[in-house]
Amino acid sequence: MNDRPHPRAQLSAYLDDALAPSERSVVEAHLGACADCRARLAELRATAMLIRALPEPRPSRRLVPHIAAAPAWLAPLRTLSTFASGVSVFLFLATALVSSMSGSAASAPAAAPAGGAATVASGAPGAFGPIGPAADQSARNRSSAAPAVGAAAPTATSLADAAKQAGATPSPSAQTQFSAASASVQAREGAPAAAQPAQPSRSIFVSPWFWLAVAVITGALAIALQRRLRSA
């Protein structure tokens, strides 16, 4: 046995190679002469080994948060689709109102898709269908229902200006309203059949069902994007 004190408090640090060289050599010298300390060192080494070999607990769920899930454009797109949905709801109501009113005034089937624009075009002299006042009234209804166009304006250019002012980006709906209103102006001024008949591709924009569909789609998109953002 060694007559110097046992360096028991140093044994773990010795095992972990965390002693300064001078301390280390003292412990080494002692271990060479002390079986008791060698046994304790072996116990500590075995203990560390047993701890390292413990079975590994596994998490029951994913612990990594979804951080990359939200690219920078996601939030603006969500806002945009929410806004678009709101505008579409408004346009749905507006076009539904107009088509129901024009339907009652011109005895046309209410809410028939593309019916409204067709009525306007047919209001021009020389075309078949109800003439003059009825068509004019339906066009005026449309004008009053669409704030982007405003009150019936005398010229096509001022209508265009109004449409530009109403929205920074001229939307298809504004253009449609514009063409419809200009058709009514021409009709009132008694212009010959110069008014272009509304084309089917344009007339879809005055269909309330179209706007309802757009409102639903953009609304669903907005909700989906919102969920995606919240999960991030």
Binding site: L11, A18, D36, L41, E43, L44, R45, A46, T47, I51
Partner: peptide, 30 residues
């Protein structure tokens, strides 16, 4: 401090060692 780490590791390891040794398991080397 590193000194505290050293002390904590040693205490914890000896505590686990004690629990094993008192069950009759032993270390070898002596």
């Amino acid at each position: 401090e590193v000194g505290t780490v050293k002390s904590r590791i040693h205490r914890a390891r000896v505590a686990v060692r004690n629990a094993l040794v008192t069950r009759g398991w032993r270390g070898s080397g002596g």
